[in-house]
Structure formats: structure tokens, C-alpha cells
Design a protein around this nucleic acid. Structure first.
Lengths: 141, 141
DNA sequence: TCTTGACCTCAAGTTAACTTGAGCCTGTAT
DNA sequence: ATACAGGCTCAAGTTAACTTGAGGTCAAGA
């Protein structure tokens, strides 16, 4: 039975976002005091899960599908595995990026394009977009 | 001296995107044959660099600033280091996510929230948003 | 009782990075 | 010479995930 302001304080999310999430079916208020929404304390867990899902690259729509309003979560295990693999690919690419940036930050070559290390990095990152697991649409570069 | 269709073939980017990039000052055509744009072959390197920058989490605007139209690239080394560190944080978080998802995919607990491993993962990912290095605006969850 | 500040709703606006559409132009093949 | 595939411009549309604003409500304190 907590107030929306309590939720904003504990979650860091603005009230507008909470209302938006409710509208989208991601969360639910447990009742009202007058006009004002009242939330169950478990809303905070749910918000964590939503955040978790977002971080994993799921869209709000996908998250809404995974966390049915009336029940516990029912996440498709296969979907989780797939997502994990996608994230792993992203990790590999980000590692290349990170190392590449660190190199570029101290590389003395006049133009980065002339540096073989930099060229290698470009090659690696060229293959696929890092944010691939978030994209619905193709992007081949 | 290649045609826009050649560029689309080699880069995988649609012509509309190339025109958009040109409009934004990210790339330049070297001339025209009639109305049609002609590009230098080095455009492909430049597009790779743009892709690289995007993957690193830079916005097109930032990228445009880093790759001045008339010269070689002049990337701020400090900016690169900062970005590398941000990416590293992202990597750490994604690793937690990946492992968490893999666990959830085979965890027998009835509800994920009841699984201590899952709870730990939620905790980790709670601290900061993964896409932090791409965000201009705060998001504390 | 009255005031008031926090909430409410609903519609519209925002941002990034493109895409789509309408209507026009032209190099190249016939 | 003529047709036309394919490029061109410019404006408007798209999507996700929110935010902002106008105008209204109401529970609690003085």
C-alpha cells in the first residue's frame, strides 16, 4: 500500500513513467485513495524485473508479454537462451570496441585509419551491429 | 568514383540512409553525374568508421563532430578513454545479464523471484542502466 | 470550512535515426 | 529521338519510450 511518490523515491522513476507503464500493462496499481494510485510494495520488485528485461534488450512490449499482469512471470526458456546468446555476441563486440578505443586513445599514428590495430577493430565491429539484439529491422553494416 | 548503388551494395546501407548521412554532414559525395551522386571509394572506410562509432555508443551528431568533413578524423583521446570505460561497465553488466538469463533458462524454481540466483542478478542489473553510455538523460533504476 | 499541493486524465510533443511518398530529372539503351 | 529505370529533392511519416502541459480533483492540514 504505497503511494506513487514512494514508488518514485524508491525506484527513481518519475511518476509519469509509472503511469505510462501502467497504461502499457507493465504494472498495476492495487487501488486508489481518492484519485491517487496505491501500489503494493512488490511493485518495486516488478520494476526491477522490468529494468532487468530492458537491460537485457527486451522491448517494453516483450516484457509485458513475459510478465503477465495477473500471475507470476512466465518467461519462455528458449527465449531466454536466445537472448543470452545475443547478449554474448554483443559482449564480444563490445570487448573489441573497448580495447580498440583504449588503443586509439594512446595510438601515435597520425590518422587512425593508418593504424593496423585500428583497422582490425573496424573490421571486427563491421560485421554486425552491436545493438543487434534490440533491433527489429535489418542493418547489415 | 562509385555510384550510390555500389555504395549500398558494399555497405548494406540503403540509399536513403546515405543521403541522410550526407545531409547530416557525415559523408560527402565527391561530385555528380547529372543529378546522381558519385562517391570516392574511401566512403566505405568512412562508413565503417561511422558504424564503429555507433557501435561504441556515439550518436551521429557526436560522430559528425569527430570526423570533420574536410580532414582526417580528430578524435578527442580523453573522450575515447571515457567511452572505453563506459563500455567496460556495460560489458560487466551484460555479463551478469547473460549469466543470469542462462541461469533462468534452466532454473527449476517456480517463480524466478524466488530463486536467489535470479535475485542476485536483479540486484546487479538494478544499479545502473546498461545503455547508460548512450543516454543523455538520467535513469536511475 | 477553506486552501492547497500533490495527483489525476488525456492529448500532444519530443528525440534519434531513418523511411516513405510524391513528383521531377536524366544517362543510357533501343 | 524516345522511353524509362533509377536517382533526385523535399516534406512528412515512423517507432519507442517517455515527457509536458492544460485543466480538473480531492484528502488533509490550519
Amino acid at each position: 500500500m504505497i503511494d506513487i511518490t514512494e514508488v518514485t523515491k524508491h525506484s527513481g522513476l518519475p511518476a509519469s513513467t509509472l503511469r505510462y507503464y501502467e497504461e502499457k500493462g507493465l504494472i498495476q496499481s492495487i487501488g486508489r485513495r481518492g484519485l491517487r494510485r496505491l501500489f503494493d510494495r512488490t511493485i518495486l520488485d516488478r520494476l526491477s524485473l522490468i529494468s532487468l528485461g530492458q537491460n537485457a534488450g527486451f522491448s517494453l512490449e516483450e516484457i509485458a508479454a513475459m510478465y503477465p499482469p495477473c500471475g507470476k512471470l512466465k518467461i519462455d526458456k528458449a527465449q531466454l537462451s536466445t537472448k543470452a546468446d545475443e547478449i554474448d555476441q554483443t559482449i564480444q563486440r563490445l570487448i573489441a570496441m573497448r580495447d580498440g578505443l583504449r588503443h586509439a586513445a594512446k595510438c601515435p599514428a597520425p590518422s587512425h585509419m593508418e593504424c593496423p590495430t585500428f583497422q582490425r577493430i573496424v573490421k571486427i565491429t563491421q560485421k554486425r551491429n552491436i545493438r543487434g539484439h534490440k533491433q527489429k529491422k535489418k542493418q547489415s553494416f
